[in-house]
Amino acid sequence: MPRCQRIKSEDAIYHIMVRSISEISLFEDDKDKDKYLFCIKQYQEIYNFKVYAYCIMPNHAHLIIDSNGADISKIMHSINLKYALSYNYSHNRHGHLFQDRFKSKIVHNENYLITLSAYIHNNPLKVKGYENQPEKYKYSSLKTYLGLEKDSSGLLDETYLMNILDLNVGRTRKNYLKLVSLCNEEKWNKEIEFQDEKTEYRSERRVLIRDFNPEDILEFIAKETQIDKLLFCIRYNKKSNVVKALAAIMMRSLCNIKIKDICNILGNITQSTVSRLCTLGVNLISTNEEYKNLFDKLICQQVSLVP
């Protein structure tokens, strides 16, 4: 039976859930949880999406992601593939790690967003030792919303949700914690999943439009790296690999094109080569100071050109 087409929108906020196949835990220990958060952060730097809430449990994880104009399938495929490869290597195993595709549901209004965040933050109540204190669970964003700890990783964008909740007031934080404690599985199914959600949700968020011209990206990279554009189509050259890797990941993130289009632009290369170049591009941008701000610089440059 064919799978249903995923419902997506350029300006959507999503409730994302990922789960492991039944016989293993998705996260064996805290190191695995740290790795998954690191993967999210790494691709956040590439795709410029926002994370409003998260909770990492032993065999599944919940995220609220504002795609900010990016394709949510690209985002989650990148994160989950990188984590699965790392997990299999660390635990000396092979094969699938995640149960089917990730699940996604579009958040249509602010009431849904608030209750969804409470439901996600409620998850640690199922963990031994946290039955009455979910705010102490390390791998949840609740502690940040309650003002108990700042998000040192830079992963969480709490401002948007905090403005909706008005969590600058201590009493409001306590009320939110009460909501978290009350938002159990049964209430979630009855009050959230089956309520009318047809009203279109529009907010004051500014969404990044992903319609960059590939040629502009190639020109930008050539200028920033001071490497001739001719090298973009040369194979087996170190400098060529660098510029092609940067071009591949920036086109994957900012252009409304498919991988096969990137293959043609970069000299009729294979899709597997594009995937390898994207991995190299992620590593270059996340670890090399020379390339760290390329995305922000290109985006600012394009915005300044808009009349």
Score class of each variant (00 low, 15 high):
132 N>K: 11
264 N>W: 06
297 K>L: 15
88 N>F: 01
237 N>I: 06
105 K>V: 03
294 L>T: 01
222 A>T: 00
15 H>E: 15
253 S>G: 12
104 S>G: 13
31 K>D: 14
202 R>F: 06
262 I>F: 00
245 A>K: 02
290 E>F: 00
239 K>Y: 12
252 R>M: 05
189 N>C: 11
12 A>E: 02
77 H>D: 05
104 S>C: 03
134 P>Q: 00
285 I>S: 02
230 L>Y: 11
76 M>N: 04
271 Q>I: 04
198 K>E: 11
27 F>D: 04
20 S>A: 15
137 Y>K: 06
218 L>S: 05
49 F>W: 08
160 Y>I: 06
36 Y>D: 12
18 V>L: 13
179 L>N: 10
227 I>W: 02
195 Q>Y: 07
3 R>C: 10
201 Y>V: 00
3 R>P: 14
186 E>R: 01
59 N>P: 02
228 D>W: 02
96 H>Q: 14
231 L>P: 07
76 M>E: 01
33 K>C: 10
196 D>K: 09
86 S>K: 00
117 S>R: 00
209 I>A: 10
83 Y>P: 10
299 I>M: 10
295 F>E: 07
200 E>Q: 14
160 Y>Q: 07
151 D>F: 02
160 Y>E: 12
137 Y>L: 11
26 L>M: 11
162 M>A: 14
137 Y>G: 11
198 K>I: 02
46 I>G: 12
79 I>K: 01
115 T>D: 15
5 Q>M: 10
107 V>K: 03
288 N>P: 00
154 G>T: 03
114 I>R: 11
291 Y>M: 08
92 N>R: 02
171 R>T: 11
189 N>G: 06
145 Y>M: 06
47 Y>T: 13
77 H>I: 00
303 V>T: 10
140 S>F: 09
136 K>W: 09
270 T>C: 15
284 L>G: 03
150 K>R: 12
101 R>G: 07
58 P>E: 07
108 H>P: 04
140 S>L: 08
283 N>P: 01
43 Y>T: 02
270 T>F: 14
119 Y>V: 01
76 M>H: 01
292 K>G: 05
211 D>F: 07
27 F>H: 06
248 A>D: 10
101 R>Q: 14
32 D>Q: 14
160 Y>N: 06
62 H>G: 08
71 D>L: 02
1 M>H: 09
193 E>D: 12
256 N>D: 13
267 G>D: 15
234 I>T: 12
105 K>I: 01
239 K>N: 15
299 I>C: 14
140 S>N: 13
189 N>A: 08
260 K>F: 08
172 T>M: 15
7 I>G: 06
93 R>H: 09
288 N>E: 15
3 R>A: 12
6 R>Q: 07
45 E>F: 08
82 K>R: 12
20 S>H: 04
236 Y>C: 13
293 N>K: 05
26 L>A: 07
179 L>S: 11
301 Q>K: 13
239 K>C: 07
258 K>E: 15
250 M>E: 15
218 L>N: 02
8 K>T: 09
176 Y>I: 11
90 S>P: 09
213 N>P: 03
96 H>G: 06
251 M>R: 04
251 M>T: 04
243 V>R: 01
78 S>L: 01
63 L>N: 03
224 E>V: 04
192 I>A: 08
261 D>K: 01
104 S>P: 00
116 L>E: 08
120 I>D: 04
165 L>W: 03
291 Y>H: 05
85 L>C: 12
38 F>I: 04
131 E>D: 13
